[in-house]
Design a protein around this nucleic acid. Structure first.
Lengths: 122, 122
DNA sequence: CGGAATCCACAAAGATACTG
DNA sequence: CAGTATCTTTGTGGATTCCG
């Protein structure tokens, strides 16, 4: 028996090592950070909280991200169900990205992160 | 002039490129993620939200992090003023880590992240 | 315009062994 | 117990070129 308290439940009860590992894999913090974490995803998602954006718009608003990386990140976000990609068959091409119902719930998360950052870092 | 809306202010007003870049460097989301982001820091900090922990305790509760990386991450967190390191001159040695006033404000952040993860990912 | 493909550099992380 | 030191491995991001 180990003291209870992995990332999921870090209280003071006792827990077996098996439960610890099991809980660890189901840690909501880890799971969320894997999906919205990383260097760029929070900024991309936060950008989209203000509405639908074209690829080029996002690129302009986040000047320091390369288009290659932006493409990769958007693909991952789409795969995880956090953004919707809508492609218009026009010339020149147009692609629009927007949040999903799932990711709209992240607005509260970004608000907390932003508030903390303003208060403690800026 | 560009459409206004970097990571800080992604509304629809107009903004100069200079303002865009200026705002970008001051983005509270980016600033916060640089300090609490990464693969391990959220878990480490979340662990400490339950109280003071010894190095070995943290290591047990986060089985998948190596002690070397845990040491590195704790050092960075200490440098950024997010954890306090208290060393007892005993044999065997004892080192305790705890949150600072600054990082205690992150509890709300982790709550939001955790709630969203439970609802949408687990 | 919105990518895809390729190559490259660097930093972060893991493995292992050792120590006050 | 709580780290260091060293080496190796992995992965993320950058630069460039090309395409429908």
């Amino acid at each position: 028996m180990l003291p209870k308290g992995n990332c999921v439940n870090s209280g003071n009860d006792m827990v077996t090592k098996e439960e610890l590992c099991k809980d660890f894999t189901a840690c909501p913090i880890t799971a969320t950070m894997e999906v919205i974490g990383g260097k760029w995803k929070p900024i991309i998602l936060f950008n989209l909280t203000f509405g639908t954006r074209r690829f080029g718009e996002i690129s302009v608003r986040i000047p320091s991200i390369s288009r290659k990386v932006l493409t990769e990140q958007l693909k991952e976000l789409e795969k995880d169900g956090l953004v919707i990609r809508k492609q218009y068959e026009e010339m020149p091409p147009r692609v629009e990205y927007s949040l999903t119902e799932k990711s709209k719930g992240l607005v509260a998360v970004f608000k907390e992160i932003s508030d903390w950052g303003i208060k403690n870092l800026l």
